[in-house]
Design a protein around this nucleic acid. Structure first.
Lengths: 337, 337
DNA sequence: AATATTGCAACAAACGATTGCATAACACGG
DNA sequence: CCGTGTTATGCAATCGTTTGTTGCAATATT
């Protein structure tokens, strides 16, 4: 615009307006300590030169970062891409909620190599708080940091004996609902697809076990610890189908992504869903009713989850020692079961 | 840890070590101006108190932000969630590449209400550069900002007459390839699913048109301007199938997400793919070989794309006036065609 | 008319680092 | 014992804001 005399800071603008930097600062903050006339003059001038005060300097002075760290820990994943729509859905909700509260979102996928990864973020002074999307296999690290750093919340399991603040659905119950549904559908042999290294998954598995046990079907249950990505799940399941002697008639997948791979693998093996096998997923991601056949699944309300995460986080930033939140899972029956 | 005397800044640590703040700063930076012995003592002390210098203060002094803004403009989307795996895939690659270069990723979904959204980010002093994932319908805004702000790159179309730096596949050619493939498969009536408001889509559409024209099939072509989300695409397509008199035998979807919705809608209408209708998508997202039937599609190499985006961006941050990059699209034939 | 109140704006000290320059400490040869 | 050269540290300015305190007029009060 004005090539030469670009206004780079509040002092430049002050000079231009013939006032002191302090006055400019207050004027731009619309402080009533400054006469309305001066205020408007300065604001007008700022607009003309499209000047915007430097956020970093402001934050330094103000002692806040204006950003929330959103971390995706990939501890148990073997480092491949996560193209998992789950994350994007969650991320979308979080981004909206944070923006609404005037905070930026500092995204970081972290493959924890040393136990210091979380400390680094927390102590960097870059963020006012941290949201973890999933706990992965890093419970110990999380617990340790949480014990000294209040504004930390995690999406995931609410684990007995653990104190960090979490938001997640009742995974045990979710697993139970899924299994019970298959039992009701008349299934008698079951398989669980998913890696119980992640605590959420472990709880879902446990819920299944419980449901099967109380129907006396605990013995007809096998587990395939498949990774969560679309890339790795499919070959694993396919191979499993090749190897297994008798295909079960009820399959519970630890996530919709895995379920989708399963549907495809089953189709390839000429197995009819839901004719021969009933399949239930977990998450109710947007694509769950786009698959062929559409996927029955246990719905986690991610919108509500994200809202809770952000709400709890800001209460913690304000100093409150909040508890955790457990959401009710809900069975969504579609064609696959 | 040490409850009382928490070390909050470089000065505290200096006091503890019995040296001046400046010395601590240099010691932590491993400067050779400081005696090895002192250096190690200070580093040890820092470790003990797990002290990490405040990044924001550092950045202010050093005049860099240490973060790159990644923006997802949602101009033509009507504000719903984007659960599109495309973004997550891209985001994952970007996150990795940026972290590798020591930069954080400031994520922002922006629904442009005023033409100032991009200026705000650029002038905030919070980011060293900006990557746009998609141009949406904001070409004018982007062009304007790009003309004065060098470190700005966009994923999307390389538009004639436009000067901002972009990385994207040759959409026109991609569209051409897709259409030609269907022609080769013997299709004679065509439909395009996708909203040409976004320039990438417009170019793909144009490519299709070109291919059809040169085979004299331009007249047998209809367009359904469907939105890009899974949520909205399916009902639109379903309705279209209800209404249309004669279903075409070649369908080109502007994205894999749309293609997936199409596959499902077709299945519901009892239309055999690829028996009666051939379908081609665009993107080659991870789930493209998970659908039933697996999806033929025009592959965009997102990994390479992300690498280019980051590379160009950093060259621009260094002051170089780089050109744009156009990637070759590649047809991936699977079951749906 | 003298004093108290108010309204505006300037001054200067933070915030927590980095870094050029000045200086202190030390060793060494003459 | 002094000058000279290293090497290691301290000092103070700086980055661009915010904000408590202060100074000064103009107005209100008695």
């Amino acid at each position: 615009m004005d090539g030469q005399g670009r206004v780079r800071n509040i002092t430049d603008l002050a000079r231009l307006a013939g006032v002191s930097p302090g006055t400019v600062s207050r004027a731009l903050a619309d402080s009533h300590l400054i006469a309305k006339k001066t205020r408007e003059k300065i604001q007008q001038l700022a607009r003309e030169h499209d000047f915007r005060p430097n956020v970093m300097a402001r934050n330094l002075r103000i002692k806040r970062a204006g950003a929330i760290g959103v971390l995706i820990p990939l501890g148990h994943e073997t480092g491949q891409h996560i193209s998992d729509p789950f994350f994007m859905t969650m991320l979308g909700h979080l981004a909206d909620a944070l923006t609404e509260r005037g905070h930026d979102l500092l995204l970081s996928r972290v493959i924890p190599k040393d136990p210091d990864w979380l400390n680094r973020v927390v102590d960097s002074g870059r963020v006012d708080g941290v949201i973890l999307i999933g706990q992965s296999d890093q419970i110990d690290v999380i617990e340790k940091v949480a014990s000294r750093y209040l504004p930390l919340v995690a999406w995931g399991a609410n684990l007995p004996g653990k104190n960090h603040c979490s938001v997640g659905s009742d995974n045990r119950k979710g697993g139970e609902i899924a299994a019970q549904h298959l039992i009701d559908r008349g299934c008698r042999n079951f398989a669980f697809f998913g890696d119980p290294v992640a605590p959420e998954i472990a709880e879902r598995l446990e819920g299944c076990r419980a449901a099967l046990s109380s129907s006396g079907l605990a013995d007809n249950f096998s587990i395939l610890p498949a990774h969560l990505t679309a890339e790795t799940a499919h070959p694993a399941i396919s191979k499993w189908l090749d190897d297994t002697q008798s295909i079960p008639n009820g399959i519970i997948a630890a996530s919709d992504v895995i379920a989708m791979s399963a549907l495809r693998a089953l189709a390839e093996h000429g197995v009819k869903v839901p004719g021969q096998v009933h399949v239930v997923g977990y998450d109710d991601l947007p694509f769950a009713n786009q698959t062929v056949p559409t996927l029955s699944t246990v719905k986690q309300d991610l919108a509500a989850g994200a809202a809770h995460l952000v709400d709890l986080l800001f209460r913690r930033i304000a100093g409150e020692e909040t508890g955790s939140v457990v959401l009710e899972p809900e069975l969504v029956v579609r064609q696959s079961s």
